[in-house]
Protein backbone atom coordinates (compact mmCIF):
# COMPACT_ATOMS: atom_id res chain seq x y z
CA UNK A 1 0.00 0.00 0.00
CA UNK A 2 2.62 2.55 1.03
CA UNK A 3 5.58 1.24 -0.93
CA UNK A 4 7.24 3.55 -3.45
CA UNK A 5 7.67 0.68 -5.98
CA UNK A 6 11.21 1.78 -6.80
CA UNK A 7 10.17 5.30 -7.77
CA UNK A 8 11.81 6.77 -4.64
CA UNK A 9 15.09 7.88 -6.30
CA UNK A 10 13.23 9.57 -9.19
CA UNK A 11 10.97 11.50 -6.84
CA UNK A 12 13.98 12.48 -4.73
CA UNK A 13 15.79 13.70 -7.85
CA UNK A 14 12.66 15.66 -8.79
CA UNK A 15 12.56 17.25 -5.34
CA UNK A 16 16.22 18.28 -5.70
CA UNK A 17 15.41 19.85 -9.08
CA UNK A 18 12.52 21.75 -7.50
CA UNK A 19 14.77 23.13 -4.76
CA UNK A 20 17.53 24.10 -7.23
CA UNK A 21 15.02 25.81 -9.49
CA UNK A 22 13.49 27.74 -6.58
CA UNK A 23 16.85 28.87 -5.19
CA UNK A 24 18.20 30.01 -8.58
CA UNK A 25 14.93 31.82 -9.38
CA UNK A 26 15.07 33.46 -5.96
CA UNK A 27 18.62 34.70 -6.65
CA UNK A 28 17.62 36.01 -10.09
CA UNK A 29 14.52 37.78 -8.88
CA UNK A 30 16.36 39.13 -5.82
CA UNK A 31 18.97 40.86 -8.01
CA UNK A 32 16.35 42.05 -10.48
CA UNK A 33 14.29 43.35 -7.57
CA UNK A 34 17.25 45.37 -6.20
CA UNK A 35 17.84 46.84 -9.67
CA UNK A 36 14.14 47.56 -10.17
CA UNK A 37 13.78 49.21 -6.75
CA UNK A 38 16.85 51.39 -7.43
CA UNK A 39 15.35 52.34 -10.80
CA UNK A 40 12.01 53.21 -9.21
CA UNK A 41 13.69 55.39 -6.58
CA UNK A 42 16.20 56.99 -8.97
CA UNK A 43 15.92 60.56 -10.19
CA UNK A 44 15.91 59.47 -13.84
CA UNK A 45 12.39 59.60 -15.26
CA UNK A 46 13.13 57.04 -18.00
CA UNK A 47 14.33 54.45 -15.49
CA UNK A 48 11.31 55.12 -13.29
CA UNK A 49 8.94 54.71 -16.25
CA UNK A 50 10.57 51.45 -17.39
CA UNK A 51 10.45 49.97 -13.89
CA UNK A 52 6.83 51.05 -13.37
CA UNK A 53 5.67 49.50 -16.65
CA UNK A 54 7.59 46.31 -15.77
CA UNK A 55 6.09 45.88 -12.29
CA UNK A 56 2.54 46.87 -13.29
CA UNK A 57 2.33 44.63 -16.35
CA UNK A 58 4.00 41.60 -14.80
CA UNK A 59 1.82 41.73 -11.70
CA UNK A 60 -1.38 42.10 -13.73
CA UNK A 61 -0.80 39.00 -15.88
CA UNK A 62 -0.94 35.45 -14.46
CA UNK A 63 2.45 33.80 -14.04
CA UNK A 64 1.44 30.71 -16.03
CA UNK A 65 0.50 32.84 -19.07
CA UNK A 66 3.82 34.69 -18.82
CA UNK A 67 5.67 31.41 -18.42
CA UNK A 68 4.17 29.88 -21.57
CA UNK A 69 4.59 33.18 -23.45
CA UNK A 70 8.25 33.55 -22.51
CA UNK A 71 9.15 29.85 -22.77
CA UNK A 72 7.79 29.32 -26.28
CA UNK A 73 8.74 32.77 -27.64
CA UNK A 74 12.23 32.80 -26.13
CA UNK A 75 13.19 29.73 -28.16
CA UNK A 76 11.91 31.32 -31.38
CA UNK A 77 13.73 34.58 -30.64
CA UNK A 78 16.91 32.65 -29.88
CA UNK A 79 16.62 30.76 -33.16
CA UNK A 80 16.08 34.02 -35.06
CA UNK A 81 19.07 35.58 -33.34
CA UNK A 82 21.36 32.62 -34.00
CA UNK A 83 20.22 32.50 -37.64
CA UNK A 84 20.85 36.22 -38.03
CA UNK A 85 24.38 36.01 -36.67
CA UNK A 86 25.07 32.69 -38.46
CA UNK A 87 25.70 30.85 -35.20
CA UNK A 88 24.84 27.27 -34.36
CA UNK A 89 21.32 27.04 -33.01
CA UNK A 90 20.87 25.66 -29.52
CA UNK A 91 17.86 24.43 -27.60
CA UNK A 92 16.79 26.09 -24.42
CA UNK A 93 16.28 23.40 -21.81
CA UNK A 94 13.20 23.71 -19.56
CA UNK A 95 15.35 24.26 -16.44
CA UNK A 96 17.11 27.36 -17.81
CA UNK A 97 13.85 28.65 -19.27
CA UNK A 98 12.16 28.08 -15.92
CA UNK A 99 14.85 30.00 -14.02
CA UNK A 100 14.74 32.88 -16.52
CA UNK A 101 10.95 33.17 -16.54
CA UNK A 102 10.44 32.73 -12.78
CA UNK A 103 13.28 35.19 -12.08
CA UNK A 104 11.82 37.71 -14.50
CA UNK A 105 8.26 37.38 -13.11
CA UNK A 106 9.12 37.49 -9.40
CA UNK A 107 11.65 40.27 -9.98
CA UNK A 108 8.59 42.51 -10.31
CA UNK A 109 7.25 41.42 -6.93
CA UNK A 110 10.68 41.87 -5.32
CA UNK A 111 10.93 45.36 -6.83
CA UNK A 112 7.85 46.41 -4.87
CA UNK A 113 9.07 44.70 -1.69
CA UNK A 114 12.48 46.38 -1.83
CA UNK A 115 11.05 49.76 -2.81
CA UNK A 116 8.96 49.80 0.36
CA UNK A 117 11.92 48.61 2.44
CA UNK A 118 14.31 51.23 1.04
CA UNK A 119 11.79 53.94 1.79
CA UNK A 120 11.41 52.68 5.36
CA UNK A 121 15.08 53.37 6.18
CA UNK A 122 15.42 56.97 7.48
CA UNK A 123 17.04 59.29 4.96
CA UNK A 124 19.48 60.60 7.56
CA UNK A 125 21.26 57.23 7.65
CA UNK A 126 22.45 57.54 4.06
CA UNK A 127 23.23 61.24 4.47
CA UNK A 128 25.35 60.50 7.55
CA UNK A 129 27.20 57.76 5.68
CA UNK A 130 27.93 60.11 2.78
CA UNK A 131 29.04 62.80 5.26
CA UNK A 132 31.57 60.32 6.67
CA UNK A 133 33.01 60.06 3.17
CA UNK A 134 31.74 56.58 2.32
CA UNK A 135 31.57 55.78 -1.40
CA UNK A 136 27.93 55.27 -2.57
CA UNK A 137 28.34 51.52 -3.10
CA UNK A 138 30.16 51.07 0.20
CA UNK A 139 27.47 53.05 2.01
CA UNK A 140 24.81 50.92 0.32
CA UNK A 141 26.54 47.70 1.40
CA UNK A 142 27.32 48.71 4.98
CA UNK A 143 24.50 51.10 5.90
CA UNK A 144 21.43 50.87 3.69
CA UNK A 145 21.32 47.15 2.83
CA UNK A 146 21.52 45.67 6.37
CA UNK A 147 18.81 48.01 7.66
CA UNK A 148 16.65 47.59 4.56
CA UNK A 149 16.74 43.80 4.90
CA UNK A 150 14.89 43.94 8.22
CA UNK A 151 11.93 45.69 6.60
CA UNK A 152 12.13 43.55 3.47
CA UNK A 153 12.24 40.20 5.28
CA UNK A 154 8.50 39.52 5.73
CA UNK A 155 7.79 40.34 2.07
CA UNK A 156 10.85 38.40 0.98
CA UNK A 157 9.83 35.30 2.91
CA UNK A 158 6.35 35.55 1.43
CA UNK A 159 7.77 35.83 -2.10
CA UNK A 160 10.00 32.82 -1.47
CA UNK A 161 6.97 30.72 -0.47
CA UNK A 162 5.17 31.83 -3.63
CA UNK A 163 8.20 31.03 -5.83
CA UNK A 164 8.56 27.61 -4.21
CA UNK A 165 4.94 26.82 -4.99
CA UNK A 166 5.00 28.23 -8.51
CA UNK A 167 7.88 25.92 -9.48
CA UNK A 168 5.14 23.27 -9.75
CA UNK A 169 4.03 25.07 -12.93
CA UNK A 170 7.37 24.39 -14.59
CA UNK A 171 6.40 20.72 -14.98
CA UNK A 172 3.86 22.03 -17.52
CA UNK A 173 6.72 23.15 -19.79
CA UNK A 174 8.39 19.77 -19.55
CA UNK A 175 10.78 19.93 -16.60
CA UNK A 176 11.06 16.73 -14.56
CA UNK A 177 10.48 18.29 -11.15
CA UNK A 178 8.87 16.64 -8.15
CA UNK A 179 5.35 16.99 -9.61
CA UNK A 180 6.29 15.48 -12.96
CA UNK A 181 8.22 12.65 -11.26
CA UNK A 182 5.22 11.84 -9.08
CA UNK A 183 2.91 11.89 -12.12
CA UNK A 184 5.22 9.47 -13.92
CA UNK A 185 5.24 7.18 -10.89
CA UNK A 186 1.46 7.40 -10.64
CA UNK A 187 0.96 6.48 -14.27
CA UNK A 188 3.38 3.58 -13.95
CA UNK A 189 1.67 2.06 -10.92
CA UNK A 190 -1.97 3.27 -11.32
CA UNK A 191 -1.69 4.86 -7.87
CA UNK A 192 -1.88 8.50 -8.89
CA UNK A 193 -3.57 9.60 -5.66
CA UNK A 194 -0.80 8.19 -3.49
CA UNK A 195 2.11 9.56 -5.52
CA UNK A 196 0.58 13.02 -6.03
CA UNK A 197 0.01 13.20 -2.28
CA UNK A 198 3.71 12.38 -1.80
CA UNK A 199 4.55 15.39 -3.98
CA UNK A 200 2.22 17.50 -1.83
CA UNK A 201 3.92 16.26 1.35
CA UNK A 202 7.33 17.18 -0.05
CA UNK A 203 6.08 20.71 -0.71
CA UNK A 204 4.63 20.87 2.83
CA UNK A 205 8.00 19.80 4.22
CA UNK A 206 9.87 22.42 2.17
CA UNK A 207 7.54 25.24 3.17
CA UNK A 208 7.74 24.24 6.84
CA UNK A 209 11.54 24.39 6.69
CA UNK A 210 11.28 27.79 5.01
CA UNK A 211 9.16 29.05 7.90
CA UNK A 212 11.82 27.92 10.39
CA UNK A 213 14.58 29.64 8.40
CA UNK A 214 12.44 32.77 8.22
CA UNK A 215 12.10 32.75 12.00
CA UNK A 216 15.87 32.62 12.52
CA UNK A 217 16.61 35.23 9.84
CA UNK A 218 14.06 37.60 11.39
CA UNK A 219 15.87 37.26 14.70
CA UNK A 220 19.24 37.84 13.04
CA UNK A 221 18.23 40.97 11.15
CA UNK A 222 16.29 42.40 14.12
CA UNK A 223 19.38 42.50 16.36
CA UNK A 224 19.14 45.61 18.51
CA UNK A 225 15.46 46.20 17.76
CA UNK A 226 13.36 46.09 20.88
CA UNK A 227 9.88 44.72 20.54
CA UNK A 228 6.93 44.40 22.81
CA UNK A 229 6.90 40.69 23.58
CA UNK A 230 4.72 38.99 26.10
Amino acid sequence: MFSLDGYGPQIFAGAVTTVELSVLSLLGSFLLGLLGASAKLSKSRTLFAIATVYTTLIRAVPDLVLMLLIFYSLQIWLNDATDYFNLDGFNLDPFTAGVITLGFIYGAYFTETFRGAFMAVPKGQMEAARAFGMEPLYAFRRILFPQMMRYALPGLANNWQVILKSTALVSLIGLTDVVKASQNAGEGTFRTFFFTSIAGLIYLFLSSISKLVQYYLTRKFSVGVRQVVF
Binding site: K165, S166, T167, A168, L169, S171, L172, V179, Q183, G186, F190, R191, T192, F193, T196, S197, A199, G200, Y203, L204, S207, S208
Partner: peptide, 23 residues
Protein backbone atom coordinates in the same frame (compact mmCIF):
# COMPACT_ATOMS: atom_id res chain seq x y z
CA UNK B 1 -4.99 26.07 6.26
CA UNK B 2 -1.50 24.62 6.67
CA UNK B 3 -2.05 21.91 4.05
CA UNK B 4 -3.80 24.10 1.49
CA UNK B 5 -1.50 27.11 1.81
CA UNK B 6 1.66 24.98 2.03
CA UNK B 7 1.20 23.06 -1.22
CA UNK B 8 0.92 24.38 -4.78
CA UNK B 9 -2.59 24.70 -6.22
CA UNK B 10 -1.47 22.63 -9.21
CA UNK B 11 -0.70 19.67 -6.92
CA UNK B 12 -4.08 20.08 -5.19
CA UNK B 13 -5.82 20.10 -8.56
CA UNK B 14 -3.92 16.96 -9.62
CA UNK B 15 -4.88 15.17 -6.39
CA UNK B 16 -8.54 16.07 -6.82
CA UNK B 17 -8.81 15.62 -10.59
CA UNK B 18 -6.54 12.71 -11.59
CA UNK B 19 -5.80 11.38 -8.10
CA UNK B 20 -9.34 10.88 -6.81
CA UNK B 21 -10.45 9.19 -10.01
CA UNK B 22 -7.66 6.61 -9.69
CA UNK B 23 -9.14 5.41 -6.37
Amino acid sequence: CFVFTGTPLYVQLLVIYTGMYSL
